[in-house]
Design a protein around this nucleic acid. Structure first.
Lengths: 113, 113
DNA sequence: CATCGATGTTTATTTGAAGCAACGTATAAC
DNA sequence: GTTATACGTTGCTTCAAATAAACATCGATG
């Protein structure tokens, strides 16, 4: 990354916690399968240091690295439900009759929410 | 070569597809909530270009950016099941009686798996 | 309890992610 | 149809993600 964005430098607590839990889950799955960090690294074409970052829940590490780790462990299918529109009940309620391809226009000094 | 890892440059097809689906899901959720890319960007402290990358499923974009987008849309809880050890039936089967904190040692020329 | 591989940590280096500005296109609101 | 805004895309700059080497520590296994 470059100009350091807040989401990577200091993510909201809920996000940071979610990443740490994901990292712990990935580590648990790896150890259950008796694989070394390097084994996972080789399967996804990365270094063992990147796998270590994933298991620490490092925010700035790439999405592909995380997804690749899941893939290497045979857990990629657990990603399919992520933000699944069919399960997004709140979203379905909010949706209007039509499905716009763009967000609605805002007035210049629209300071809502 | 420093920053270029295969997982970011050319992820496995299954991983690339999972990321694109996730990006589409996030876009659907955003539009249902009638938010602009910039609205989501401001909530997570990033630029609209990063949100655009997320919705395209760009592999190299940070995990925190993806998780932050889910958080901004109230969908972070869908991440809790990711690689959940309790649901990892294959992992539980593979696990030995004890839970080692390290992967087993390998011989030097161990070329298995 | 000794060995040696797995993992943590540091440092240095390189490359690409992220920001930003600018321009063009698409679309929704009128 | 007109217009203001959302979105797509490109080129450029900046700085952190990723790598690798080196060393320390942890821990599985005999």
């Amino acid at each position: 990354m470059a100009n350091s964005s807040r989401i990577n430098e200091a993510p909201p607590a809920a996000v940071a916690e979610a990443l740490k839990r994901l990292g712990r889950n990935i580590r648990t799955a790896r150890l259950r399968r008796k694989l070394r960090m390097q084994d996972v690294a080789e399967r996804i074409g990365a270094s063992r240091y990147t796998v270590a970052d994933i298991e620490k829940g490092k925010p700035g590490t790439s999405m592909a690295a995380y997804a690749g780790a899941l893939w290497a462990l045979g857990l990629l299918d657990t990603m399919n439900e992520l933000a699944d529109p069919d399960r997004d009940e709140e979203g379905k309620t909010l949706e209007s009759v039509r499905s716009p391809k763009q967000a609605p226009r805002r007035r210049k000094l629209d300071n809502d929410f």
